[in-house]
Computed example of a mutant assay.
Amino acid sequence: MKLLEYLSQLNTWSIIVRLLLAVICGGIIGIERGRRRQAAGFRTHILVCMGSALVMLTNIFIVMEYSPGQDPTRIAAQVVSGIGFLGVGTIIITGNKQIKGLTTAAGLWASACMGLAIGAGYYLPAIAACGLIFLVMTVLNNVDKWAYQHSKVMELYIEFQDIQYVSGFLSEIRIREMRSSNLELTKSKVPGETTISALMTLYLPRRMEHSHVLSLLSEIEGINFIEEM
């Protein structure tokens, strides 16, 4: 308890411990993102977490030294909103309108909040948050994938050889007792090409493995490419 009381004060050793803890906690989250080849990985998460901790420490120091009685979170509050520019940089929209990077952006924001807690000397909640964030990004990622793969709704991106094959495709899925909605067709802009791109929502009659559904649909005549978004 005496050690925790000592580290809760702003002194040389508590500053070192807080910055090192921010490096460790940020690194734990960053390793998971780096493993998945995300733009914001190991080093980015460390810098975000450590930088947030440093901002909080600086804010506390300024209040203690120059403005006793003032709000010690004034500067730190800007980190929570300011981290948005990094988050936006990790979110991309692919050519078939698929959004990627939201989890990484959320992880960066959570790392910044974790760093602020560490910088304020709020050790136990920060460490607990680190464990929970890592749990969400690893274990719950598999749960999310399983639920997604067994959903009765699929968002599809399809490339047809020609517009004439679209009606045939819709007839085939009706035969298989599937329903479609939100169909968007886009013609290729390359001169001489007749390729048609389609975005659609597919409703399955029962829970099926999505990979099996894609395999079945890819065999329909006129399809060049099909994937789940």
Score class of each variant (00 low, 15 high):
Thr94Gln: 08
Leu47Gln: 06
Ile62Ala: 14
Ile223Glu: 09
Ala39Thr: 12
Val55Trp: 10
Phe134Ser: 06
Thr138Gly: 13
Thr186Asn: 10
Met1Ser: 08
Asn59Phe: 12
Met200Trp: 03
Leu140Met: 11
Ile127Phe: 15
Leu183Phe: 08
Met154Thr: 03
Ala77Gly: 14
Val23Leu: 15
Ile46Leu: 07
Tyr66Asn: 04
Ile91Val: 12
Ala77Gln: 13
Tyr6Trp: 09
Met200Lys: 01
Arg207Cys: 11
Glu219Arg: 13
Gly30Met: 04
Asp71Thr: 10
Leu4Gln: 08
Phe169Pro: 12
Val166Phe: 10
Arg174Ala: 05
Ile62Tyr: 15
Val80Trp: 04
Val63Glu: 12
Val88Asn: 05
Arg174Phe: 01
Glu177Trp: 10
Gly27Ser: 07
Leu140Val: 11
Phe160Leu: 09
Ser171Asp: 14
Ile60Pro: 03
Gly51Lys: 10
Thr73Glu: 03
Gln70Thr: 15
Asn142Tyr: 10
Asp71His: 06
Pro125Asn: 12
Gly27Trp: 10
Gly119His: 07
Gln98Trp: 00
Ile16His: 01
Gly115Phe: 06
Val143Cys: 03
Val79Pro: 10
Ile16Gln: 02
Ile28Gln: 11
Arg74Lys: 13
Phe134Met: 04
Arg206Val: 11
Val213Tyr: 09
Ile15Asp: 05
Asp162Phe: 07
Glu32Leu: 08
Glu221Arg: 15
Ser81Phe: 02
Glu228Phe: 07
Ala53His: 09
Phe61Lys: 15
Val17Trp: 13
Phe225His: 14
Arg35Ser: 09
Asn224Ala: 07
Lys187Phe: 12
Leu102Cys: 00
Leu47Thr: 03
Leu7Ala: 00
Gly121Thr: 12
Leu204Lys: 04
Ile127Pro: 10
Thr58Gly: 13
Leu86Gly: 02
Arg174Asn: 12
Ile99Leu: 07
Val55Asn: 05
Ser218His: 10
